[in-house]
Design a protein around this nucleic acid. Structure first.
Lengths: 233, 233
DNA sequence: CTTGACACAGAACAAGCGTTCGGGTATCAT
DNA sequence: ATGATACCCGAACGCTTGTTCTGTGTCAAG
């Protein structure tokens, strides 16, 4: 008997409102007025917009200040639904990367939002390539010295974009079943082999025959090294 | 004859207004109303607040939308005056660092605010050591491969804190007049010499006698490597 | 002393804006 | 049919807010 007409929860209109709220806030640095919302969401009556805002407030997506113009504040919960487009980006640290351990598997399209914010890094969007929307970025923490030929140290954080293919010259994270090893190298496709070039020019490349297995896991977008503690010894 | 009563340019009141604008925006996610500004800045008339806002707009610190409630937008120029207290930190890139060129001179206490925002990097505060307030941080862009023994590459950005001394195990930027060279090394003070240890453990340290000159310019706080373009060749 | 820029107050007006209320129309379960 | 529920409109009311106009006192230059 408990059947409801529509979805009862969040509808297309709710999403539209939240999206406009974030867009407007982004563009003008202030929330829109009720009438401005109505225009964009095709609601001709202010009371209906008010109606939706009340619902969204009850659902916890926003807070409202009584009798204050543009008194709408989006909450963190909105980020569960709307992609927040501020100047900050929270990238989850999925795990360690080291020579002997496989890279974490990635389901494409799944957003790895960790509620545990201890396992994430914040990155300024201005540091990313402009076209990079950063949607599926993830990070790995380097363990051990095995990436030293990529000039990446123990403790460094590697920000990556999921990828299974790469163009010549891009730095990629690969898993080499042959050697049972994860590594970061510049990727080059040659006649009948792949050349994996260390970032350190004094070191020699690895060659992998095209017939041999080679799993590209992602492209490296950024490397961050925090120098918190002095080096021991 | 061109003497003016007060400072002609920006006054204490202007600063107060800008500060309240940023604080309020930070707290509520929307700009304050004119009357709200008046309350906090001890101005009893809305017309006077309007008067100041018009001035600040002419000076380029903010933009206003006509007849829109809370239609005040702060511009980037504000960051030259007000320390933005969000979770972002803008660190100026003072110049290049390379083996052959001296490090930029730093006047302690002077804030190197560049009006050219192209020469700065934004860093999330959460990436810094918690005690680090980041007040005098600056950044250098590494040119060439000479820092390769510090596992730092051409194009990397090194974020540093000004310092003339260092404790054992900290990574520092030093200028070696003996070799006419700038370099990044882990610093160790030993009996009668300094040991400058490359981050790459396969490489050998440099020893400097305590009688020889050695100028510590700063401690390395962070290294950022952007992988925007593929490696050529 | 006069003039004029400057910093401010106060009041009044109109437009912006949130709130509320009465009414309307579907859809679905009873 | 009937009522409940969800969705929607329009209008009116009153507070909020930006704008504008008049007026006052101060200070430096002429």
């Amino acid at each position: 008997m408990m059947m409801v007409r529509k979805s009862k929860g969040i509808t297309e209109k709710h999403i539209k409102v939240l999206e406009f709220l974030t867009d407007y806030q982004n563009k003008y640095g202030r929330p829109p007025s009720i009438r401005e919302i109505g225009e964009k969401v095709k609601i001709s009556s202010t009371s209906v917009v008010n109606y939706y805002l009340d619902q969204l407030e009850k659902m916890g997506y926003l807070e409202r200040d009584d009798r204050v113009s543009r008194g709408v504040r989006l909450t963190d919960k909105v980020s569960e639904i709307i992609q927040i487009t501020t100047d900050m980006l929270r990238v989850p640290i999925l795990g360690p990367i080291a020579a002997g351990i496989p890279l974490p598997e990635l389901q494409p399209g799944v957003s790895y939002v960790t509620d545990n914010e201890a396992h994430a890094v914040d990155i300024a969007r201005s540091l990313l390539p402009s076209k990079e929307k950063g949607e599926n970025l993830f990070a790995l923490e380097v363990k051990g010295d095995s990436m030293i030929d990529a000039m990446i140290n123990d403790g460094d954080i590697v920000v990556m974009k999921p990828a299974t293919e790469a163009r010549n010259g891009e730095m990629v994270a690969v898993w080499l079943p042959r050697d049972n090893e994860a590594t970061l190298k510049y990727f080059f496709k040659e006649k009948d082999r792949y050349r994996l070039q260390p970032a350190n020019p004094t070191m020699k490349p690895i060659f992998i025959k095209k017939t041999d297995p080679l799993e590209i896991k992602g492209k490296v977008v950024m490397v961050i090294r925090k120098m918190e503690k002095p080096l021991a010894v």
